[in-house]
Design a protein around this nucleic acid. Structure first.
Lengths: 233, 233
DNA sequence: CAGACATTGTGCGCCAGCGCACATACAACA
DNA sequence: TGTTGTATGTGCGCTGGCGCACAATGTCTG
């Protein structure tokens, strides 16, 4: 007789599912390592896999006419990539770019579709997550419009920390500029300021959060708003 | 014997449903007149009704710390209000404010929930719409970040026209400022410019689009992007 | 070790939009 | 007819972020 003990799953969307459902999903999944800069989806292209990050972070990016990209959402251990499938669409409207290298579970679209049809619990979890992602997106939209670069940078670093579960990650200022929708130089200035205040350190893409509380104080409230939402969830 | 002829439904989300499903929904709906400025949802408050606009337009707004609101989405005859219900959540994350006075069909949350559970077609339609709304939101987010007030104003007017199905509507510059996330004075300037170019006319809140094509030229491409998406849909 | 490249730092002029304050114009109503 | 309130127009100084250009590092590789 088999002992059914629960393997701790590092992705909280999966972990929240009943044991049976979760095991059934895991049976069709593989663990893969995502590397920084990897592009999981491109706008308009079909989705081949869904991903459940465990200790990595993936940015959702939109382009704007003649401009660089801008981040509209962030997916980590609290969520999944490939939600259009749950909405009956098989292509991604946004780019998905891996920011923090790390691990994720993945599964083919076909398998996901099958599991999704068969499990009301999975549906519930995914739909709930879509709701949360929409809140994150709208909050991000307002934030991108109103708040200063320094506060947005602080928020971004904190949100990334929460998803990657580490105070240290690799990311150049150039890429950060793309996330925040500002010039690289704008990041240089904002980051330099945060460093002066001993909140972070960085060197050639190696960023470390030194003072999380201080960074929270420097960030806009958008950080707390999105964080609270996920906690309550 | 009853003659089952098809009543033309002015809401395209409903109209796309099979006759039977559509009739079943209509049986539980009432037609109401929405007046400009009416608030249908407030963030965090429970959703009592879902709405299917026919010739009105409703703005979805988010607040940002210490700032005015900003529009993150726009719902007209192509969609519905109350999508959180379809995602298993009974409260709205955003404000929903009526911009263009007009008619809508509405139905209680309880009835909608029942119908939604029983009709796979309705689910398909609504989920598809959620997907489209997400695209609109992300595009709006990028647009709000990058494009100039004048282009965004032009886009807003065009999108409103498409939803209200009229070249003329009532809206003060002050309210427009809230939509676009800029000062009222910013709207005065941008609108004055559009007027100088004979693209629009306005007087104490009465706005008329004089030259739709010219306005499209003045708008950012975001207009076309979102429009194309709905057409293809 | 030298060269190529990637990353970060700095300076400078520019401008869209902000905040504030005030002026005008029109409408409604007493 | 005057008063009050709403809507629009204008002016002014300020600033955050932009675009551009160049300098100064650190890293990798041949």
């Amino acid at each position: 007789m088999q002992v059914a003990y629960r393997v701790p799953v590092a992705n909280s969307l999966l972990a929240a599912l009943p044991d049976k459902v979760c095991q059934s999903l895991l049976a069709h999944m593989e663990t893969i390592t995502l590397t920084s800069g990897e592009v999981l989806y491109r706008p308009g292209e079909p989705i081949h896999h869904v991903y459940f990050p465990t200790d990595t972070m993936v940015s959702l990016l939109t382009m704007a006419e003649g401009h660089q990209a801008i981040e509209v959402g962030m997916v980590g251990r609290e969520g999944m990539l490939g939600i259009p499938l749950a909405l009956g669409v098989s292509e991604s409207p946004v780019s998905a770019v891996v920011q923090g290298a790390g691990m994720a579970l993945r599964m083919t679209s076909a398998h996901f579709h099958k599991e999704f049809q068969h499990s009301a619990q999975l549906q519930r979890g995914v739909y709930r997550y879509i709701y949360e992602l929409m809140i994150q997106m709208t909050q991000t939209a307002a934030c991108n419009r109103f708040h200063r670069v320094e506060a947005r940078l602080a928020r971004w670093l904190l949100m990334t920390r929460d998803r990657v579960r580490s105070d240290h990650f690799h990311l150049t200022q150039d890429l950060l500029g793309n996330m925040l929708g500002v010039r690289r130089v704008g990041v240089t200035k904002a980051a330099g300021d945060l460093r002066l205040r001993n909140l972070i350190s960085y060197n050639r893409g190696e960023i470390t959060i030194l003072d999380g509380d201080g960074l929270e104080a420097a960030a806009c409230q958008c950080y707390q708003i999105v964080k609270d939402m996920h906690d309550v969830a």
